[in-house]
Design a protein around this nucleic acid. Structure first.
Length: 417
DNA sequence: TCTGGGGTCCTGTGCCGC
DNA sequence: TCTGGCGGCACAGGACCC
């Protein structure tokens, strides 16, 4: 059996742990730049704030109901997530941390356990030790555990936030109850396509002929379908090594000037290089992209990306920056209002075990230099930059409603008088 | 005026060499 | 020598997840 444990309204719950006056009140947490609502309390959901709601469109609703609005505080959430995951792994050794607020567990050798009461116990310990409420779904496959989790979350009074799908009857009944987009891996587009052929809920999807699913959708959907039938196709994934690393940002104001774009892209490529070095990886490929504002239909639209294969795998800020700038020059078009840009590095290899190039000579002085730069920047805050980065200008995210870093910054720790 | 960021995986297309 | 078929690869784009 698999279990999925999910933290309820995770970001909002983290904020409430340290600010209990928010309990029972509508609260939302915003994305970077305070753009959209990405976590909502149950009260805010009831008032009609959808997931991803652009906050400027909901200003009046927010004012009318006195909804508390907070900027996202990632150091806090990451720390709280670590605490929750540590507790989970004490209960079950086979765990896969799927995201900041979710983990899959595998019950192997638990045949003599009463899974329901074991899960209840786990839930209450997490709540007591961290203050974070969770929901747990248990089923024979990961996809069904997702469904079970939704039931646990949706019907807290009947389920006590723990639900087990252990019989065919329960499975069929649940699948009939849930829509297509409630299935893990079926999004908006696929739901619409499936509805067009008269497939209206998860059970209908499960009953589609497998050959049709394979030919018209993809191997992914076929696997999901088999999982819904109870055949386990997806196992726990062990610690994942990242396959790509990205730094992308939306701009506060549109940018059309190439020089300004280059300055931003430089910063992104440096950030990617730092992330690479932190995980001891080298990149073989760098991708640069820019795009205009999709939401402004009245303006000229343009988006383009450039994939560049590097001469040798590297994590040198200089080399990555050099190719990123080459990329942006290639795809840049004038007279466009750009809203977003980003740098992605991929085809990653470990830095102690990679294919050398016969023809390209890399500068071996870069490695110790990067190490020194990282050291200085870590110790003294980003002091060392490249010359083409604007040294005076600070590109700062908009975070007007940021809560303190209660658990990760000594000056922010709560004091009790 | 104001709409996130960081990931994974799959598919279609065009090119190349066998 | 020419040509069609096919697999492999790179790349762009799309769909999904949180």
């Amino acid at each position: 059996m698999f279990a999925l444990i999910d933290c309820n309204n995770f970001y909002v719950s983290c904020e409430r742990v340290f600010n209990p006056s928010l309990n029972g009140k509508p609260v939302i947490v915003l994305s970077n730049n305070d753009g959209c609502a990405i976590s909502r309390s149950d009260e805010a959901k009831k008032l009609g704030i959808p997931m991803g709601a652009p906050v400027f469109k909901y200003k009046s609703l927010i004012n009318q109901h006195n909804i508390t609005v907070l900027s996202s505080n990632y150091p806090l959430y990451a720390d709280m997530s670590n605490r929750v995951m540590t507790i989970i792994s004490k209960f079950i050794p086979d765990t896969e941390i799927y995201s900041i607020d979710e983990a899959f567990l595998k019950f192997e050798g638990y045949e003599n356990y009463d899974l329901f009461s074991y899960a209840l116990k786990m839930r209450s310990v997490i709540l007591k030790w961290t203050g974070i409420p969770t929901s747990i779904g248990i089923a024979p496959t990961k996809s069904l555990a997702k469904i079970a989790n939704k039931i646990a979350r949706k019907f807290p009074s009947q389920t006590k936030n723990v639900h087990i799908l252990d019989t065919d009857d329960k499975r069929i009944k649940s699948l009939k109850f849930f829509g297509l987009s409630d299935i893990w891996g079926i999004g908006r587009r696929l739901s619409r396509r499936l509805e067009n052929i008269g497939c209206n809920n998860a059970l209908d999807f499960m009953n589609l002929p497998e050959s049709w699913v394979r030919n018209n959708l993809s191997i992914v959907e076929l696997k999901i379908q088999q999982e819904l039938k109870g055949t386990s196709n997806l196992n726990l994934e062990s610690l994942k090594v990242k396959k790509s690393i990205a730094t992308t940002r939306s701009f506060e104001r549109p940018i059309s000037d190439l020089h300004k774009l280059k300055e931003r892209v430089s910063t992104f490529s440096l950030s990617c290089a730092e992330k690479l070095r932190r995980q001891n990886s080298l990149a073989n490929v760098i991708i640069v992209f820019i795009r205009s504002n999709f939401f402004r239909k009245d303006l000229k639209q343009y988006s383009c990306s450039k994939v560049i294969t590097l001469p040798y795998p590297t994590n040198s800020s200089f080399i990555l920056n050099q190719y990123a700038l080459k990329g942006i020059e290639d795809i840049y078009r004038s007279k466009i209002d750009y809203k977003k840009a980003g740098v992605i590095v991929s085809s990653l290899v470990p830095d102690d075990n990679y294919q050398l190039s016969i023809f390209e000579k890399q500068d071996y002085r870069h490695k110790p230099l990067m190490k020194t730069i990282d050291y200085i920047n870590l110790k003294h805050g980003d002091k060392i930059k490249l010359a083409n980065q604007d040294l005076r200008r600070k590109w700062k995210m908009k975070q007007e409603f940021l809560s303190p870093c209660y658990t990760t910054k000594i000056s922010d720790v709560i004091t009790i008088k």
